[in-house]
Design a protein around this nucleic acid. Structure first.
Lengths: 241, 241
DNA sequence: GGCTACTACTTGTCTATACAAGTATAGATA
DNA sequence: TATCTATACTTGTATAGACAAGTAGTAGCC
């Protein structure tokens, strides 16, 4: 995960200097970054060179610049590109529905062989396990089951998931480094039928997701939705069109 | 899809000029882009301003610059972010299968109201229509129906789709500016059942996709696969994809 | 108190110039 | 023929300076 290339270019040295201070925690989100003139003096560079360094860091999303005010460390984003699949709550809000959530299970368990393998743990290790039912105007839209690596989100069980979704909580708590998605059409498992109030023949969309944080598997979740109540939509644009 | 912002900044004007030529197809992949000095003369700007324009376009992935040689239009990538959904042929190859393709229809038709609306045409306009059946070891895996805007791919009908897939042909012919995906779980339509040799109760994955090229809707397609024979998988990494 | 004007700072854009470094080509040389 | 060389291009980096535009604070005024 490290990359300590030799920065022969001056603007690269400046970039690296600022990035290091951010990564080391010396500069925290919203902290002020030295101004162009300060940096150019410190590195005996022209202002344009400091400008280039800060401009590129802006494009990389590490800092935020406000004309007339200054430069500040950016707060880590919820990473749009990484998980284009919106949280179910926002999805429902987007089509004008009324989201609610029922907590069917929220507990600590011992990982069985399958779960341990998927989370990169050893069978018997503690894992957090949650089952939620998302509803739109009282109708079940998504049955979502999650297994969480406690090392990544120790306070997962203490949250109130009728108010914030696990996705939202986890995004705040553990920055997502990578994500794996599998989307399938399946028959609804028998034990889920009642919660979604659908017929066994109804095709369902099943989204299985694993996420990685801090170089570990953070979550393994699987979400089931009736095909006629839920679709996945994605619009991808190139550049600034 | 339009956005003709006023480019008050000179470097923005230069960027926009180059992007327009690429999007319009006047500059095609691997074509030479005017050099910094040429652009600076044309826009009465300094070389640094042209440099900034081209540098930013490089970071946006639209062009490729080689020191000492020149600047060239980038070839559309294996399209990491835009279409993470691989072509069915590569997908099947990936899991070690043996792909084949049966052409069920390949014709020019008049657009009905629905198709015309989706393609941004007028009912009665000519469109290309294809229906293909993708197989793995002779078993139907995906039934895919496409409507193509002839303006974007005039030679679409002349291709041999038992050898190359429409996706591959279209990606070469028309650079994708944007794409819209809808993924659903559905029951298999009656007229498709026979081709896929499945039961009517079998849940199917339906992927509907629209793509834009040259500022027009290029394709509207819908692909249906049996849930137990086909899944969508995606792996997203932060940084280097 | 509430208002304006001024100042001191910030970032944003642009210029004109310079040199370094990489590449391709034509021409001279061995 | 094969190889070196000069040259004419390209992009990459860096400088010093200029003005525009936006913001925050302060001082002075009504």
């Amino acid at each position: 995960m490290e990359n300590s290339a030799k920065p022969r270019a001056l603007y690269e040295q400046i970039k690296q200097h600022v990035v290091k201070e951010i990564d080391a925690g010396l500069l925290r989100p919203d902290d002020r970054v030295p101004s162009e003139t300060q940096l150019s003096r410190a590195f005996k560079a022209s202002r344009m060179t400091a400008n280039r360094a800060l401009k590129e860091l802006t494009e990389e999303g590490r800092i935020v610049r406000i004309q007339g005010v200054g430069t500040f460390v950016a707060r880590p984003k919820p990473d749009a590109a990484l998980l284009e699949i919106k949280s179910i709550a926002k999805e429902i809000a987007g089509w004008g529905g009324k989201h609610s959530c029922e907590v069917l299970l929220l507990a600590e368990e011992s990982a069985d062989e399958d779960i341990a393998a998927r989370l990169g743990l050893v069978p018997g290790d503690k894992v957090f396990h949650s089952i939620l039912l998302h509803k739109d105007r009282g109708v079940g839209v998504q049955y979502s089951e999650r297994h969480i690596n406690p090392a990544v989100a120790p306070d997962y069980l203490a949250q109130d998931y009728t108010r914030i979704t696990p996705s939202d909580y986890l995004l705040e708590t553990a920055p997502v480094q990578a994500a794996e998605h599998v989307i399938e059409a399946v028959r609804c498992p028998a034990h889920v039928l009642g919660h979604l109030q659908i017929d066994a023949a109804e095709p369902c969309l099943c989204l299985t997701r694993r996420t990685w944080s801090f170089d570990r598997v953070a979550t393994y979740s699987s979400m089931i939705s009736p095909g006629f109540r839920y679709k996945l939509k994605g619009l991808f644009n190139r550049g600034t069109i």
